[in-house]
């Protein structure tokens, strides 16, 4: 099958300025030479700890941040070369659901008005009745009732707000949704509801998802393939099944080992020492070298590149496990 979304060699760095004259004192390589692709209808998870560049990656793909290098193409169309006007036209095909449902809605707008915005922006003219019918249909799609159209954000629970945000993202029938930690602010019982809903919508509307999360168990459950990021770099791409059975990168292994299982008889957690280093002026070599228990001289000098694995994944490691 053809690749639907193609990201190649995408990078972005931010200058850090300091001192009296705000001179450039260094750079943060937030996303470094990232390449991957999504097939139509696929759900791909991006997982990593804070500061690994997963949210920046989402924003780069939608061009909410301009990349320093690389290319993004959706359905064969190069997103990065589009003019502002053309980009706006294309945005309806790719929508984002944000992490914090509490801050995405205007507190002065009713749900109805918030959900009318996408149509107004796209200049889609409806009669009043048509608009109401369309919005009620959207609300129904996310298991809310038409009554919720009259509510203000503060009258809704966190789960309901996230449903409204999903409805907003779906309003213009996009083909791809980028979900940036859509359940991180919710309780587990509500998280399960939202995950159920997202799965149902994916099947019904033939959506493609890029699902960003720090929760490996959740990504493992919901996604077909998983991209593991560390300090702006992709360290491994693998299928959801192999995360548990055959991870190649020591960091992927460490992440799976650090999931707290609800089975009290499971073996004790193998703790990964240290913390994610600052992305400020990264040293050469493998980004994970400072915390890796298999580190050798080569790792500190030469950065490994992604290479194909036997299972059809990719791994960037000089000394992979297995």
């Amino acid at each position: 099958m053809d690749n639907f979304l193609n990201v190649s060699n995408l990078s972005v760095s931010f200058d850090v300025r300091g001192g009296l004259l705000l001179r450039k004192i260094g750079t943060i390589q937030a996303v470094n030479n990232v390449s991957f692709s999504l097939r139509k209808g696929e759900t791909v998870g991006v997982v990593g700890e804070s500061g690994c560049g997963k949210s920046t990656l989402a924003r780069l793909i939608l061009r909410l941040i301009e990349p320093s290098a690389g290319s993004v193409s959706l359905n064969g169309l190069d997103i990065l070369s589009l003019s502002k006007k053309e980009l706006r036209k294309q945005r309806r095909h790719m929508q984002m659901v944000f992490q914090d449902p509490f801050s995405v809605m205007d507190p002065r707008y009713t749900v109805y008005r918030s959900l009318s915005e996408p149509f107004k922006i796209r200049n889609i003219k409806h009669s009043k009745e048509e608009r109401l019918a369309k919005i009620n249909e959207l609300l129904e799609m996310v298991d809310l009732s038409p009554i919720h159209g009259h509510s203000y954000p503060h009258q809704l629970s966190g789960g309901q707000k996230q449903r409204v945000d999903i409805a907003r993202a779906l309003a213009l029938s996009p083909e791809i949704l980028i979900l940036d930690e859509p359940t991180a602010a919710l309780d587990v019982s509500v998280q399960a509801q939202i995950i159920d809903l997202l799965g149902e919508l994916r099947d019904r509307m033939d959506l493609t998802y890029l699902f960003i999360s720090h929760d490996l168990a959740l990504v493992n459950y919901f996604c077909d393939r998983i991209i593991v990021m560390y300090l702006g770099n992709i360290v491994e791409i693998l299928s959801a099944e192999s995360v548990n059975t055959k991870p190649y990168h020591p960091y992927t292994k460490a992440l799976t080992d650090n999931v707290f299982s609800t089975d009290p008889n499971s073996k004790p957690i193998h703790v990964l020492e240290g913390e994610v280093p600052s992305p400020f002026n990264l040293p050469s070599g493998c980004v994970f070298a400072s915390r890796c228990n298999k580190v050798q001289g080569l790792c500190r000098e030469v950065a490994p590149v992604l290479e194909a694995t036997a299972e059809g994944g990719e791994v960037a490691c000089h000394y992979p496990i297995n």
Binding site: S157, G158, G159, Q160, D187, V188, S189, V190, Q191, A192, Q193, I195, D196, G199, D215, L216, A217, L218, N220, Y221, F222, V243, N244, T256, V259, S261, T262, D263
Partner: peptide, 23 residues
């Protein structure tokens, strides 16, 4: 129900069960 709505590594697709409503 609470234990049933927590995903774990290797959980089978479709076996996550939500609790309807909210606290």
């Amino acid at each position: 129900a609470l234990i049933g709505c927590i995903p774990y590594m290797g959980m089978k697709k479709g076996s996550l069960s939500a609790i309807a409503g909210s606290v």
